[in-house]
């Protein structure tokens, strides 16, 4: 996967600061109790059109990104990991800021939303890309955040 084939839709912008991090929320079914994280946690899911959601470091803190996810996503985050724009580019793809894209009526977009572009990749290429992202994220380690407190809970 050495050739980078960039094709952006209206409103989409490439993120160009190679040091900037993109935060990824890891859902419960992608994390085992002993801390093993599935490589699939860094790839697309069944309904994101090959645009797995990340959050821009420049726009939002990891904690704020997690809090937003916990409030609006279907399942809570079990933790935050990250890849840099440079690591994604080194893996043969790119990160897209889609905050200026039009939203469907009633749809919500997380603050600082961006995505790693898996569009147009074969199944094997998707497997390779998420494996590379996983390895980079594991080298960096978990980004410290706290789970949202339940109603009435004062301390973690």
């Amino acid at each position: 996967m050495t050739d980078i084939d960039v094709e952006l839709l209206e409103g989409e912008q490439l993120m160009s600061d190679s040091d900037e991090l993109a935060y990824r929320q890891v859902a419960p079914h992608m994390l085992e109790d002993d801390g093993k994280i599935a490589t699939t946690a860094f790839g697309p899911n069944s309904s994101d059109n090959n645009k797995p959601s990340f959050s821009r470091q420049r726009e939002v803190s990891p904690q704020a990104a997690r809090d937003w996810h916990d409030e609006y996503a279907n399942s809570p985050s079990r933790g935050v990991w990250a890849v840099s724009v440079g690591e994604v580019v080194a893996s043969g793809r790119y990160v897209v800021d889609d905050s200026k894209c039009a939203l469907d009526p009633g749809a919500l977009r997380a603050p600082g939303h961006c995505f790693v572009d898996f569009r147009g990749l074969s199944k094997l290429q998707r497997k390779e890309l998420r494996a590379m992202l996983h390895m980079h994220a594991m080298r960096r380690g978990e980004i410290p955040t706290e789970a949202a407190k339940e109603d009435g809970q004062l301390f973690s």
């Binding site: 079914h29 992608m30 085992e32 002993d34 093993k36 994280i37 599935a38 490589t39 699939t40 899911n45 069944s46 494996a131 996983h134 390895m135 594991m138 080298r139």
Partner: peptide
């Protein structure tokens, strides 16, 4: 070593050994 065992969105199961050095699945 124990692998991670995860469901896949296609209705399958992913068994993998994945860390910062490599992935086998």
């Amino acid at each position: 070593a124990s692998p991670g065992v995860f469901p896949t969105e296609d209705g399958g199961v992913l068994i993998e050994w994945a860390d910062a050095t490599g992935v086998r699945s």
